[in-house]
Amino acid sequence: MMQKIDASVLCREGEHSHVEPRWPYGGRVHRDPLSGSPAVQTAGLQVCYPGAADPAIKNASLEVSCGCRAALVGHNGAGKSTLLKAMAGLLKPEAGTIRLFGNPVGACHHRTAYLPQRSDLDWQFPVSVRQLVLTGRYVHLGWFQQPRKKDEQLVSRAIRRLGIEQLAQKPIGDLSGGQQQRVLLARALVQESSLFLLDEPLNALDEATRDTVDEVLREHTQRGGTVLVATHDLGRLSESFDRVIYLCEGRVEQIENLTSGHLTAPQQSASTSRDGT
C-alpha cells in the first residue's frame, strides 16, 4: 500500500510561486484550500448544454483526492468532456455542487489548469508555440501586467520538458496533432496549478510521446498535484492511473481503484484517495 500523503500539503503544491496579481481576472482573490478537502468533489451534479433537452451529466457524485491520477473513461457522448468543462467552470451546473479543494469552482483560478480538446483552439491564430505556452502564465499576471523574466524561464523549462524546443518559434498553425497536444500540456505545466483537468491529452500521440506525457503527469502527482484525464486509451489505464471513473450516458457507473483492484459503486461514497481508503 502506498504511503498516505497529507492532503493539505498536497493541495498547496505549486502555490509558493503564486503572487496575487494587482488586477486579477474576474476580480477574484486568492483563497486557500480547505484543510483535508479532496481536490475534486461533486455531489448530485447535473449539467445541461444550452438549448439541449436532456442533461449531459446526471446526478454525478465523485471525489478525487489530492495526489491522485484518475482517468475518466466512457464511450463518445458519455459525458467525460462535459464533466471536465463543468469542473473548469465552462458550464454551469443545473443542480448539484462542485468543490475544488473545498472551494466553489472559480474561487481560485490559478489552482486549476484545464487542457481543452485540440479542436477548441483556433490554430490559425498568428502566434508562435512559445507565445501560446506563455498564455499559461496569464492567470498569474492579470490585467495590464506583461510577462516577466521568471515567466519566460518557466516557459523555457516547460518547453524543454516536453521536448518541443525545436518548435518554440514556429507558428502554431504548422503543428501536427501530437505536437499540438504537447504544446497544450506545456501550457498547463507553466500554469503551476495543483489540479490538471485534461480532455483527451493522449489523442494523436505516438508511443514515445505518450510515454513522455505519462512521465510528466506522474512527476506532477509525485510533487503532490492531482490529475483528472478524460481518455479513450484503455490499454494504458493500469500503468498510467491510480483510479478509473467509468461514465455511461452522463452517469458515473463505477469507480475502480487500480492500486487495490477494488470496485466502488457511485452511490457508495466514491472516494478515490491515493492510498485506497
Partner: peptide, 15 residues
C-alpha cells in the same frame, strides 16, 4: 489575443 485563440482557457482563468 487569448480570448481569440483559446476562449476556453481564458474562461477558466477568470477572463
Amino acid at each position: 489575443a487569448l480570448t481569440t485563440v483559446d476562449p476556453h482557457h481564458a474562461q477558466t482563468i477568470g477572463l
